[in-house]
Simulated scan of single mutants.
Amino acid sequence: MPLIVLQHQNYTVLENIVLLKFSDGWFFVTFFFFFIYCSILIGNFCILTIIRIETHLHTPMYFFLSNLSLLDILYSSTTLPVMLFNCLSGNKKISFRKCIFQLYLFVSLGGAECILLAIMAYDRFVAICNPLRYPVVMSSRLCASLSATSWLSGFFNSILHTVMTAKLTFCRSEQNINHFYCDVPPLVQVACNPTKVSKILLYVVSIFLGFTPFLYIVITYIHIISTIMKIKSSEGRWKAFSTCSSHLIVVTIFYGTANFNYVGPSGYNLEMENLASLLYSILTPLVNPVIYCFRNKEVKMALKKHFRYTYVKTYR
C-alpha cells in the first residue's frame, strides 16, 4: 500500500525526502567521505581479523571489542554509502521508504552500541574489582547472552521510533530536511501533524537507552577508579587504568555527541545538531580502531606479529 500524507484534507503520495545538507559544494568532500569510509572498514576489519586468528585474544574483553567493531562497520554503512552517492550524483533525494529503512537500521545499531558500551564497562568492573572471580563470572555463555541482549535491545527499540516516525504526516509530497541522512529528530521537526507524542517517545526512549547506560558507566567507573587508587604499586595502577582508558575515551565521544543530539534541546541550533550527528555517526567508528590499537599493547603486538608473518611469507 502507498504511504500517504494529509494535506488540507487531501491525500497525496509521500514520495521523497530531500537532504538539504548536500549542496553543490559537497562534491568536493566526496573523496574525504570515501577516505573516512575506507578507513572505518579497514580499521575495524583488522580488529575483527586479529581477534579471530590470535587465540590469546579470545577473552571476554576482546569478544565485546569484536562486537563493537562489527557494529561500527554496519553503523557507518547505513549512512556513508548514501552520502557518497548523493555527493557524486548531485541527487539530494531519497525515497520515503528507503529513508524509513535507513532510519530503522541507524537507530537499531546506535542503540545496540549504547548497551554494548555499558556491557564493556561491566566487563572492566569485574576484571579490576573482582579479578579472582573474573573467569567464572564472565563465562562464555554470559558473554554471548550479554552480546545478544545489546543487539536485540537496539533492534526492538528502533521499532518504536520507526513506527511512530512512519505515522507522521507532512505538508508536501516532497519533504525537505536540513540533514545528512534520515534520522528521527529532523523528521519530527518538519512534520505537519501534532508531534507531541513522537517527541515524548523520542525523549523517554533516548533517556532510557542513551542516558541510563551512560549513568551506569559513570557509576561503574567511580568504583573502578576507587579500586585502582587502592593498588599500592604505581605500575599496577597504571596497568589497571590503561585497560579501561580506551573504553573511557570511546564512551566520552559517543555518548557526548549522541545525547546532545537526542536528549538535548531540539531545533535551537541546527548546525550544532548536524555536527553532533556527523560526529557520532562517523567519528566514533573511525576512531575506535585507532584508540583500541594504539593504546592496547596486546592488539599492537598481535598486529605486528601478523604483519611480520605475512611479510616473511610473501617475500621469502
Rank of each mutant, 00 (worst) to 15 (best):
V299Q: 08
I282G: 00
V287T: 11
M272V: 13
V287D: 07
F31G: 07
T55D: 10
T149M: 04
F32Y: 13
S145E: 08
L48G: 03
Y221N: 14
K196S: 02
G267M: 04
E271G: 03
L303H: 09
R97D: 14
S158G: 14
E273V: 06
C293Q: 14
V299M: 10
W26Y: 13
C46Q: 09
E273Q: 10
F170N: 12
Y309L: 08
C99H: 01
K304N: 14
S147M: 08
I17L: 12
N16D: 15
T195P: 00
K297V: 01
I40H: 02
V107R: 00
Q175M: 03
I115P: 01
T310K: 15
F208K: 07
G25M: 12
L152G: 03
T162K: 07
T49N: 06
A166E: 02
C171D: 12
I217S: 08
H179F: 09
S140D: 14
N274W: 00
F241S: 15
P135Y: 04
D123T: 11
Y309F: 12
M164F: 15
V82H: 12
Q7M: 06
N91L: 07
V299I: 14
Q175N: 05
V184D: 01
L283M: 11
Y280L: 14
Y280H: 14
F214Y: 11
E15Q: 10
Y315P: 00
P60F: 05
D183H: 07
L278D: 10
S147L: 06
F125L: 13
A302Q: 03
Q102R: 05
G25R: 13
P81N: 14
I128G: 12
H56N: 06
S233P: 00
R308M: 06
Y292I: 12
R295Q: 10
